[in-house]
Every structure is written in structure tokens, then in C-alpha cells.
């Protein structure tokens, strides 16, 4: 073959070798077809472990009960017993180390999430006690009158 054919051919070969070399170094060894096959499982296997190592923020009510037995027990016996601690007290993160104290959401809006009267005939929302926020003690915080750990009106 003539020189003018070989020259560009060398360039192409060099390019291909270069790309293959780059790929060999850049693509990690665990990248490839995994359990779910080529269509659904073509990925870097190590990423599954990376997602598993993602830090938890919400620890669950049992975690709270380990130290705060009394509060946990009093809540459990009330109408609000079904509500997880962290819904109002905020995510535990690494409490008690960090943060040392959790910020409790005492806002009216938090209570209103469930207790604004909405007409929802096909939903359990209809069965919850509800108020009209424009009529019911406007400007006051719910916790001024109602005890969130014992919301029963008889005990007010």
C-alpha cells in the first residue's frame, strides 16, 4: 500500500488504541452487566454499596423510646399515639451527640396538616377532628390550649 494510505491509517489506529487505553484506566473494574442483564443491570456495582452507605436522618420512634421512656409511653396512650416522634420533634440525625437538642415544630401549620376540616368523603381525612383555621382561635398556637401528647378535649 502507498504511504498516503498508511499515514491516516496509523492516526486512526493510534486514536483507537488511545481510546481503549483511556477506557481501560477510566472505567472501573466493577462496571458492566450485573444481575439484571444488559438492559436493566448495566452499571457500576460499587454504586449499590455507595447508596447503602448513605447516612440515615430519621431513626424511628423506638430509638427515641430508648431514653425518653416516659414521654414515649404517655404519647402511646393518647389519640396521637400513632404519630411518630420525629414528625413533630424533627429528624433525630445523631441526637444526642449532634444535634444536642432537637427543635420541636410547635407551629399551627403542623397541626393543620391533619386538623383543618376538609370535605374528603373517600378519605380517612373526613374522620379526623377538624377546624376552620379562619374561625378557630386565629393567631394562637394550638399547643397553648391542646397538649400534643394528650389531645383529648376532656383532659384540657
Amino acid at each position: 500500500m502507498k504511504k498516503h494510505v498508511w499515514r491516516p491509517l496509523f492516526v486512526v489506529i493510534a486514536l483507537v488504541v488511545g481510546i481503549l487505553l483511556f477506557r481501560a484506566f477510566y472505567v472501573p473494574a466493577d462496571f458492566g452487566v450485573q444481575e439484571r442483564g444488559y438492559t436493566f443491570g448495566y452499571h457500576r456495582l460499587g454504586n449499590e454499596q455507595e447508596w447503602k452507605n448513605f447516612p440515615d436522618k430519621y431513626k424511628g420512634s423506638d430509638y427515641c423510646a430508648d431514653c425518653h421512656e416516659e414521654n414515649s409511653a404517655s404519647l402511646a396512650n393518647s389519640g396521637h399515639g400513632i404519630i411518630p416522634c420525629e414528625d413533630c420533634h424533627g429528624a433525630a440525625f445523631n441526637h444526642p451527640e449532634s444535634p444536642e437538642k432537637l427543635v420541636i415544630d410547635r407551629s399551627r401549620n403542623l397541626c393543620m396538616r391533619c386538623h383543618v376540616q376538609l370535605t374528603m368523603p373517600s378519605s380517612q381525612r373526613n374522620d379526623l377532628p377538624g377546624i376552620d383555621p379562619q374561625q378557630h382561635n386565629v393567631g394562637m398556637e394550638c399547643a397553648d390550649c391542646h397538649n400534643p401528647h394528650n389531645p383529648s378535649l376532656e383532659d384540657m
Binding site: A91, R113, L118, M120, S123, Q124, R125
Partner: peptide, 19 residues
């Protein structure tokens, strides 16, 4: 269970903070 959902949105808040 769409009958049980009351639209409190605590799931959305928890998801955003957790993730």
C-alpha cells in the same frame, strides 16, 4: 392505601430531609 392517606404530607417532608 389511598383511603388511609389524610394528606398531612409528613412523608414528603421526611423524604426531603432524609435524602
Amino acid at each position: 392505601d389511598t383511603y388511609k392517606c389524610v394528606g398531612c404530607g409528613m412523608c414528603v417532608k421526611a423524604c426531603k430531609i432524609e435524602n
